[in-house]
């Protein structure tokens, strides 16, 4: 039940060329996420999505404004899924799972195995990442992030490097996993269809890093991409984006 509070957040980057203009990655945004919800942050490239995630994770600092991520008043524990799997190639799948855990007890191993099983990778414990396909590697990355049982899970376009078929099956895995664990998730993507299938709420950012829209989606989980209700909603929201005249999908 993490609580994320973003208030009057702004991030400026120095001009990329000498004498150029300051780059406004994020301009004064406010939002709050409370409870076990799946929230997507959508927008075209260069609208500050990844910057926002970096600030939330503490990798980057804001120019002004503030972000807090708390769990029952204390700093929340975070989990990450990156664009690429980021597994240690010299460690087996199971050893990769154990790398991010603090204890190596039998119980801890069993817990890691449980999450691998949830993404359908029971048979891969002893394999090296190089022996797995890109999609399987990303599944390990997702299992790893869930297995640390974070209060808040940050996901940065985790399916953008995969082919459409693999991405689709991974979305199903993610839906399954999320329905069972109900973490607070902030999911960055440029894919509106993906956001509609996965999220309870979509925060739309526009170039310059301003909030363009904040959409609630009230459909039960887990949702299948083939579900006509999902498809209808996708079409509807995609239509809204066309009216907004921002390049929603790249």
């Amino acid at each position: 039940m993490a609580k994320v509070t973003v208030s009057k957040l702004a991030k400026l980057f120095p001009p990329p060329i000498k004498g150029g203009d300051v780059v406004r990655a994020i301009t004064n945004i406010d939002f709050e996420v409370d409870g076990n919800v799946f929230v997507s942050i959508v927008g075209p490239s260069g609208c500050g999505k990844s910057t926002l995630l970096n600030i939330l994770s503490g990798v980057d600092t804001p120019t002004s404004g503030s972000v807090t991520v708390t769990e029952a008043g204390k700093p929340a524990k975070l989990g990450y899924v990156f664009q690429d799997a980021r597994l240690l190639p010299w460690r087996s799948v199971m050893d990769n799972m154990m790398y991010v855990r603090d204890d190596a007890s039998d119980e801890s191993v069993a817990n890691a195995a449980k999450y691998l099983s949830m993404v359908g990778l029971d048979h891969t414990h002893e394999m090296f990442p190089g022996q797995l396909s890109g999609g399987m590697q990303q599944r390990v990355g997702i299992a790893r992030a869930f297995s640390v049982e974070p209060d808040l899970l940050l996901m940065d376009e985790p399916f953008s490097h995969l082919d459409a078929m693999t991405a689709r099956s991974l979305r199903d895995h993610l839906q399954e996993l999320w329905s069972r664990t109900r973490k607070t998730v902030l999911f960055v993507t440029h894919d509106v269809m993906e956001a509609v299938q996965l999220s309870d709420r979509i925060i739309v950012l526009a170039p310059g890093g301003v909030i363009y829209d904040d959409i609630s989606i009230d459909l039960p989980h887990p949702r299948k991409a083939s579900d006509p209700k999902v498809a209808t909603l996708q079409a509807e929201i995609l239509g809204q984006f066309e009216n907004m005249q921002i390049p929603a999908v790249e």
Binding site: V59, Y80, F82, L88, W90, Y99
Partner: peptide, 24 residues
Amino acid sequence: KGLLNMSRSFGRSEKQMFRDVVVP
């Protein structure tokens, strides 16, 4: 650098990162 970032995000210590990422 991606692996180092990943390690940092999951709260691994500098010592762990050296032993498990840099040395290998």
